[in-house]
Design a protein around this nucleic acid. Structure first.
Length: 587
RNA sequence: GGUCCCGUGGUGAAGUUGGAGUUCACGCCGGCCUGUCAAGCCGGAGGUCGCGGGUUCGAGUCCCGUCGGGACCGCCA
């Protein structure tokens, strides 16, 4: 890098970036380097070459004959000048100027690319983009996404430093633990038959950093989980991982909030308002999910009381009856679509779905005849539904009712990521235990077994474990779970009681978690922490529906890297050095 | 493990009731062209219709299987 009078992007080969040239540069002799985005020839003595680098595009006017074609890498030295009257292009940032009197050097010729290296590639099969990711990355959208990602990382790091957090790196080769996500294993050459695991998160190490007196730790950590991939899930992903000592929930939320809001400000130029909080119970009750999208209404309305005396069998005796109103949807939803909604509801666990089209003076519905006039009136009052609206009702136990309607609410009403305001929300007071393990009959941990129970509920651990709230919290943005955390248990007696509720004996706890819990006996401070996904935050801030768009080299849903063709089989000699023999493929 | 959608020159699409690898746009190659900016005009090349099997006189089209990609469920303490 050459520091000259032209600024920090100048090098020995160039003075300016293509996208930076403006009317203020008129008269300057410049050198620009980049790829040929497009060429427009007008005979032997005039050609326009749009030169592209990551900053943008500049039109260069060539009046000698040079053979430059799409994606050739060239260097142009010329003079910046105003475009002639009537030939400016206001669709381009550099459209008022051009580079003339050009000397063109071809630095590298190029084959025609398999797809247009511009916004037209947005419509190209993702296969093709991923096979030629280096070409895809040349595009403005991808360069912008990489830079959004870098801004997020940088702002987060800066915010953590500002708050006195210490960056500590934790190992990538860690012991395999039976709990949690499936791990990637790494064979040990020195101990054939033994394996390391790649970390699904630095969880245990960061808590031991607290035992180690670090006080405030953070890391932009790579995490690896061998679970099925989704639009918001890759095998490898990045988290802002943090942990702090001598804190309560408020301290953690404040520190994490500062990092997230700083990142948002760095990308969007405006700091979002303070993050609101709702309890897990309220989130389920109002939105039917533990990661509510607050950008739109259609909240669940409890209508259990409306039907307390009902004779309609599908509703009678249900623990919870709830409704959502789809505004003005009565005419849009035909029988076919309503059947599909019903199928969707059933696939989530509902026994059925009741739909009512609100019409003047009543309902249009296959079950209208089972709803009494007073129930109808009360239903309309409770839901505020008016003629033309579609009302969807589920009756079941509370949890199922909420979950089914919450899923339908998202399916029907959720706007695309790039639309609407950014609505951050803390979901707090998650239940300590979720559901019951079929095999053991014991409750299952909601977060992880070291999560601290809510102080008011500690005495319910033995008598009514499923109603115990925890000091665990999620951060949610527009319906995406960004991350989660908790205040941990640091005292042995409380930990013993939680293990007992989970059906884990002292011996089993020692065996499974001894290496982690024994250190606590040497003095563990009260502590808690959080981790949130940087890929997800970046995707939302970049307006992308899919985290692959903000990852330079992502993998497909089946875990393949189409550019490098990995994973690949390896030579048998390499396997044998590692003490590994593969099984034949079975059908 | 499951459900659904997609696969046609380099790219994106169309392809009807099963009737000739047919069509369109972009790109590519050649020619013309001195103010374009998705330049324009003329000409040309380019195909294992993902792959395999079946039905049929005949399959891009129908059926079965398989591979690849995607969305979702399960899974992700």
């Amino acid at each position: 890098m050459t520091n000259n009078e032209y600024g920090r992007h100048a090098t020995s080969m160039r003075t300016h970036l293509c996208g930076d040239l403006r009317t203020g540069d008129i008269g300057t002799t410049v050198s620009v380097c980049g790829w040929v985005a497009r060429r427009r020839e007008h005979g032997e003595h005039l050609a326009f070459v749009d030169l592209r680098d990551h900053s943008g595009i500049i039109q260069c006017v060539i009046d000698n004959s040079v053979d430059v074609r799409s994606e050739y890498v060239i260097r142009i030295t010329g003079v910046v000048r105003a475009r002639p009257e009537g030939t400016t292009n206001l669709n381009v940032a550099t459209g008022e100027v051009e580079v003339g009197e050009c000397i063109v050097e071809v630095l590298r010729s190029a084959d025609p690319p398999p797809f247009a290296v511009d916004e037209r590639a947005d419509g190209v099969d993702e296969n093709v983009r991923l096979q030629h990711r280096y070409l895809d990355l040349r595009r403005q959208r991808m360069q912008r996404n990489l830079r959004v990602r870098a801004s997020v990382n940088s702002a987060v790091r800066e915010a953590m430093e500002r708050q006195g957090f210490v960056e500590v790196e934790t190992p990538m080769l860690v012991p395999s633990t039976p709990e949690g996500a499936r791990e990637f294993l790494v064979p040990s050459r020195k101990s054939p038959g033994s394996f390391y695991a790649l970390p699904q998160s630095p969880q245990l190490f960061k808590q031991l950093l607290m035992v180690g007196g670090t006080d405030r730790y953070y890391q932009i950590a790579r995490c690896l989980r061998d679970e099925d991939l989704r639009a918001d899930r890759q095998y490898e992903f990045m988290q802002l991982d943090m942990e702090m000592s001598f804190v309560t929930q408020d301290d953690v939320l404040a520190a994490v909030g500062e990092a997230v809001l700083s990142a948002a400000e760095a990308v969007l130029g405006e700091r979002p308002p303070e993050i609101e909080r709702i309890t897990w119970h309220e989130a389920m009750n109002r939105f039917g999910v533990d990661k509510p999208d607050l950008r739109f209404g259609m909240e669940l309305v409890d209508v259990t009381d409306v039907f307390s005396q009902t004779e309609f069998k599908a509703f009678a005796g249900a623990e919870a009856i709830k409704a959502i109103v789809v505004p003005n949807a009565a005419s849009e939803y035909g029988r076919n679509q309503l059947d599909r909604l019903t199928d969707r509801a059933k696939s989530i666990g509902a026994k059925g779905l009741v739909w009512l089209k609100v019409i003047d003076g009543g309902f249009d519905s296959p079950v209208a005849k089972f709803i009494s006039e007073s129930e109808g009136t009360e239903l309309r009052a409770a839901t505020s539904a008016s003629a033309g609206d579609l009302v969807l009702i589920v009756a079941d136990n509370w949890m199922t009712t909420c979950e089914v309607l919450g899923t339908l609410r998202n399916d029907i009403g959720r706007p695309p990521v790039h639309q609407g305001p950014y609505r951050y929300v803390w979901v707090v007071e998650f239940p300590l235990f979720v559901g019951v393990d079929q095999a053991t009959g014991r409750p299952k941990p909601g977060h992880h077994p070291f999560t601290r129970p809510h102080a008011d509920d500690v005495d319910l651990i033995e008598s009514d474990p499923l109603s115990v709230r925890s000091i665990a919290y999620d951060l949610v943005l527009n319906g995406w779970e960004l991350g989660s955390g908790s205040i941990r248990i640091h005292e042995p007696e409380l930990q013993r009681r939680v293990f007992a509720a989970l059906g884990i004996s002292q011996e089993e706890a020692d065996r499974k978690f001894g290496f982690f819990l024994r250190p606590f006996d040497y003095g563990a401070p009260p502590h808690g922490g959080f981790a949130f996904g940087l890929d997800r935050l970046t995707a939302i801030l970049a307006g992308e529906e899919n985290i692959r768009e903000v990852i330079a080299y992502p993998k497909t849903q089946s875990g393949a890297d189409l550019m490098t063709n990995s994973p690949l089989e390896v030579d048998i000699a390499i396997l044998s050095e590692l003490g590994i023999r593969t099984l034949p493929k079975v059908d």
